[in-house]
Structure formats: C-alpha cells, structure tokens
C-alpha cells in the first residue's frame, strides 16, 4: 500500500512575505491517479503544484515524492525534479532551439544519455503528441496548441513518474484547446499520474479520479467528479462552480 503513494504533502504552509499562499495543505496522490485542481485565481492551486517540484520553497510541512523527502538540498531537489514533469500555461519552450533540441536538452544534460538515444526518445514522444513532422521547426513557427503539445513531449522525454499541468490551456485560442486536452486525455489513458490545474470541467469529468477545490490557500473540498459536480458540499464550491459553469 505504501508504495502505491507517489506524492504525500503534509501540513504544507507557504508564505510570500506576509501573505500566506498555502494553509496547512494535506494531499496524497496515488500512482496512476488523475487529480484536477480548481479554484478562483489566487486560491493557491498553482502555488501548490509548484511546490511539488520545488519551483517554490515551503516554510512548514513536508513533501515526499516517490519516496524522496523534498528538502533544501540540491540532491533532494534533483531527485524529485527527475521524477516530476511540468507543463506551463505559457509553454516556456526554449525559443532559440528547434522542437527536437527542446526535447533532447534535458535528457542529455540531466540524465546524461547519448545524443542518439535522446533523439530516439524525443522523436518517439513527438510522434506520440502527433507533432513528429515539426521536429526541425522553431517554436515561433508553431501554433499555440502545437507549442503546448511540444511542451508536453519535452516533459515526457524525461520519463517522469508524475506530470503537473499548470493551466495548460488558459493561454490558448479556443480552437486549440481540444488538441491539447486530447493529448492529455491520451496520457491519462496510458496510466500517467497527473495533477492538473485547470478550469476545463469537461476534462475533469472525463479524466479525473478526484477533483479538488481550493480557496484562500486551503483545500476546501474534494471528491470524485460525479459527486463533486452534482452535489458540492460547501457554499464556496457551489458559488465557484456556478460562476465557471455559466461560461461553458
């Protein structure tokens, strides 16, 4: 049972100066589990996932990823980042590198594998996000949807145990949202452990094992998507869902 748990956050507290961004957050993620995090802006959902790969430091509590306790040591941070892939709202592809180079850099530098091997892995995952024919292009030559799929492939090339998505479709034109969501659904169907910060409630219904609602840096409510959407317990959840679903 114990090694079924991939991520365990306990009593996590995070401040930005005097502002408390996370209040006593507990979260346990099992292997293969798909979690959707939602909540109003400023609720701490992005901060929460950014703590998992230590893009943000926490002030109190503990985070264990794949059996490795995350502390301030470079070694611990290294080990955890090798296991955790991340996709950002603004893609953050490296603009001076081709799509292929974007995907090969980290495996070569961080995993120290050969160029040939890295290229084979990169081409495999680019194929998988159905963008293999664009491998020689630069990010600026691609549409937003294509760029985000490259970003997903780039993260997958490190063969992570869990993928974090930080509002991956928020910066996209509406007609490109589907291609990215479809890629994520494919990934979920392959059994990848995923934590997604998103307002795509259709995606949540289809893919999530658990939906978590956050407000003011706290987890307010969580549940299986069916129960969560049909019968939210808290007034804040109802208010949030009312606002967000009115737009869809």
């Amino acid at each position: 049972m114990q090694d079924q748990i991939l991520i365990e956050m306990k009593g996590v507290q995070k401040w930005y100066g005097g502002y408390q961004a996370l209040r006593n957050v507990d979260l346990t993620v099992r292997r293969g589990e798909k979690i959707v995090l939602c909540g109003p802006s400023g609720s701490g959902k992005s901060t929460l996932i950014r703590c998992i790969n230590r893009l943000e430091a926490i002030q109190q509590g503990s985070i264990v990823v794949n059996g490795h306790r995350l502390d301030d040591s470079i070694k611990a941070i290294d080990v955890v980042r090798q296991d955790v892939g991340m996709v950002f709202q603004s893609f953050n592809l490296f603009p001076h590198m081709t799509v292929l180079q974007n995907c090969m850099l980290a495996p070569i530098r961080a995993r120290r594998i050969s160029k040939t091997e890295a290229e084979a892995i990169a081409r495999k995952y680019l194929e998988r996000v159905r963008i293999g024919d664009q491998a020689e292009k630069y990010p600026a030559q691609l549409s937003g949807g294509q760029q985000q799929r490259v970003a997903i492939a780039r993260a997958l090339c490190m063969q992570p145990k869990v993928m974090l998505f930080d509002e991956p479709t928020s910066a996209l034109d509406p007609e490109m949202v589907k291609e990215v969501l479809d890629t994520m659904i494919g990934l979920a169907n392959d059994g990848m452990t995923m934590i997604c910060v998103t307002h795509e409630m259709g995606f949540a219904r289809q893919v999530a094992d658990r939906v978590i609602f956050m407000a003011d840096g706290q987890i307010i409510e969580e549940g299986a998507p069916d129960a969560f959407f049909r019968n939210p317990q808290h007034a804040r959840t109802r208010q949030f869902l009312g606002e967000i679903l009115a737009h869809h």
Partner: peptide, 22 residues
C-alpha cells in the same frame, strides 16, 4: 523571461546548463 529558467529547472537542469543552454 522567468518562465525560461523555471522550465529549465522543472526539467531538472542544473545552474550551469540553465545558464549555458537556456
């Protein structure tokens, strides 16, 4: 942009590679 460094960190790249490559 800060996102470039963050993406590099998320990929597990060390300081020297983050600077030199990104």
């Amino acid at each position: 942009p800060r996102g470039q460094t963050e993406a590099a960190m998320a990929l597990g790249l060390h300081y020297s590679s983050r600077m030199r490559d990104v």
